[in-house]
Deep mutational scan, measured.
Amino acid sequence: EEDDHMEFCRVCKDGGELLCCDACPSSYHLHCLNPPLPEIPNGEWLCPRCTCP
């Protein structure tokens, strides 16, 4: 299965362990989110761009 998510964080543009949005190709480091997440959430996760009205 091919993964179309970005291979770098949308905020800092660095690679590493990234959290991928379930609705778009964006990826983020947990510490780059505002507010930062302490751990990878269970289940579906939507990035700030997808949850913003």
Rank of each mutant, 00 (worst) to 15 (best):
E1I: 15
E7S: 06
L46E: 10
C20K: 11
N42V: 09
R10A: 06
A23S: 15
N34Q: 12
C9F: 01
L33F: 06
C52Y: 05
L18D: 00
D4H: 15
L46S: 13
E1G: 05
E7Q: 04
C20F: 10
P38F: 09
T51L: 10
S26I: 09
D3Q: 14
E7K: 04
P41Q: 10
D22Y: 09
P35M: 06
T51K: 13
D3K: 15
P25F: 08
L19D: 04
P35C: 04
G15F: 13
N42T: 12
D3V: 14
G43W: 05
C50Y: 02
G43M: 04
E39F: 06
P48G: 06
P41N: 15
D3C: 01
G43F: 15
E7D: 12
E39I: 08
F8S: 08
P25H: 12
R49V: 12
H29I: 00
C50F: 01
R10G: 10
Y28T: 03
E2M: 02
C12P: 01
D14A: 14
P35H: 04
H31M: 09
C47V: 01
D22N: 14
P53F: 08
D3L: 13
K13E: 15
E39C: 04
I40A: 06
C24W: 00
L30S: 12
E7N: 09
E39R: 05
C12K: 02
C32S: 00
C24H: 14
L37K: 06
D3W: 05
P25K: 13
G16W: 00
D14L: 07
D22P: 11
T51S: 09
P41E: 13
P41F: 09
L30I: 11
V11D: 13
L46P: 03
H31L: 05
S26C: 08
C21W: 00
W45Y: 05
C24I: 00
T51E: 10
M6T: 14
L18V: 13
P48N: 08
P35A: 05
C47G: 03
R10C: 05
E2H: 05
E17Y: 05
N34W: 06
H29F: 01
N42G: 14
C32M: 01
P48Q: 09
W45H: 03
H31G: 14
D14Y: 03
P38H: 11
P48C: 12
W45F: 02
N42L: 09
C32V: 00
C52H: 15
D14N: 09
S27Q: 09
C20A: 13
E2C: 04
I40G: 09
D22H: 11
C52V: 13
D4K: 15
S27E: 06
H29L: 03
H5A: 05
C24E: 02
G16T: 11
R49L: 08
G43K: 10
